[in-house]
Design a protein around this nucleic acid. Structure first.
Lengths: 246, 246
DNA sequence: CGCCCGGTTGACTATGGTCAATACGTGTGG
DNA sequence: CCACACGTATTGACCATAGTCAACCGGGCG
């Protein structure tokens, strides 16, 4: 199943040091986190937790991509969130996972056992503060998705997804968001469909349509070139200037 | 516009004392909150904040119902949340409202000016802790809505909305959730449609269908009698037993 | 080589949206 | 008191968007 690793990464050199739940920690606090952390790796496709499962740990994604999703009895599934490096998994104070958590690519987590982490949170306000900020960001993101799911057309949904992924990649890589953009999308058509509340056929058709119209170009199946990012944004249905989130 | 009130409510007698952001405060912390709070009342239909507006305050709903919503340029709007008494408005650390906030009924807010509140939060972990819990609950609720918006049929959406409102009413009034239930729904057909990502016509048709099939009965326009709550739940598409949230 | 997985495309269908007419309740003013 | 307007809700006819079902493509791998 999972492949435990030794703690070969020291927090000081951790790639998500400045973005994860530990971002605001001083060296003292970091030491205490370091003492209770351990790493865990999942293969692509592996389930990290099922909805309703007890989860003995909380943690941060260090590397790779995972998804949060929920499935109706008859198999309809809805993705609820993309977990990228630095995103947090689990809810302090609640041991049952509310959702299915699945590794999309190979994923490495920095895990904290629940009890020690909760105790640590109680005495290190910097962790709780950072977690509040991150949770508020996720809430904004979830609400942005509500608008997409409830009110956007298939084409707008696709354009919005691409724009969101591009934006998240650019904050990770510091690329800029004008003109020509390259998007590495780590999702199958089916995963995109589950994100957008569409079928995979509709996703495929809409991507083909954007391609036909010259708004995007495919490079292989999983890399998308956007000729003009502004043109893509114009397809999202969003207010151009005003308050885009996440 | 707004009708400022004197601070006639003392926190000790506040109806939301044990559920709002101040729930975990000890008497010392409560005193400090008391020192910076003021009340504000909005009439039904009045806008509390527009998306993008600077908001000089944060606060709690004390009385009444408000909505969070977002609107695309062409007028399509999506409700993002219902704000009931004890719910929190605004985001610490960000002065611009991300959403439109509208009073549905007459609403009284317990407001805190932004700066003093943020300073207070930095030194009273109980406020931040409670806010984190509330935010995590809202995040779960938002994700439940994502599933409804993305994957449910019109009929399932209506049934889910009724079930959610019934559940929220029952936690406020301690009614029980079996058999015959009475739901006071404070929303117009259009507001329901904006919640569910439907048109008001579809909402009307689905409600008529549920009525025709004897699952619900209307008493006036705004009161719904559910003959058998289990039968309503069977129409939501949800897993019967497992993990319903919110 | 042939299978499997993921993706694309086509033909047809169904669900929900659009537009429009009608109904109903309430408050206003003649 | 009635007439009227208004906002809200219901219903119908028609239509469009996205879903369903199915065929086919292409690359990677046993």
């Amino acid at each position: 199943m999972t492949i435990p690793l030794t703690n070969e990464i020291h927090c000081g050199e951790c790639p998500i040091r400045h973005r994860a739940v530990c971002a605001k920690c001083d060296s003292d606090e970091l030491e205490r986190l370091e003492a209770i952390k351990y790493y865990r790796t999942y293969e692509a496709g592996q389930t990290i937790a099922w909805a309703g499962d007890e989860m003995s740990f909380l943690g941060s994604v260090v590397r790779g991509v995972a998804t949060l999703s929920q499935t109706l009895e008859d198999g309809r599934t809805q993705m609820l969130g993309l977990l990228l490096p630095s995103d947090f998994i689990g809810r302090p104070g609640r041991s049952a996972s509310a959702y299915d958590v699945t590794a999309v690519s190979e994923v490495t987590l920095c895990c904290f056992r629940r009890r020690p982490f909760e105790q640590l949170m109680a005495v290190t306000p910097h962790v709780a503060e950072r977690l509040l900020d991150m949770t508020l960001d996720e809430l904004d993101a979830a609400r942005e998705w509500m608008l997409i799911l409830g009110r956007k057309t298939a084409r707008e949904k696709i354009a919005s997804l691409l724009a969101i992924i591009a934006r998240r990649e650019s904050t990770l890589t510091l690329g800029n968001l004008k003109g020509r953009i390259e998007i590495n999308l780590p999702l199958t058509r089916e995963a995109m469909a589950d994100y957008l509340g569409l079928t995979l056929e509709t996703v495929s058709r809409q991507i083909s349509a954007l391609k036909r119209e010259g708004i995007i170009t495919l490079d292989g199946k999983r890399k998308i070139l956007v000729e003009d990012f502004e043109a893509l944004l114009a397809e999202t249905g969003d207010d151009m200037d005003g308050g885009m989130i996440a």
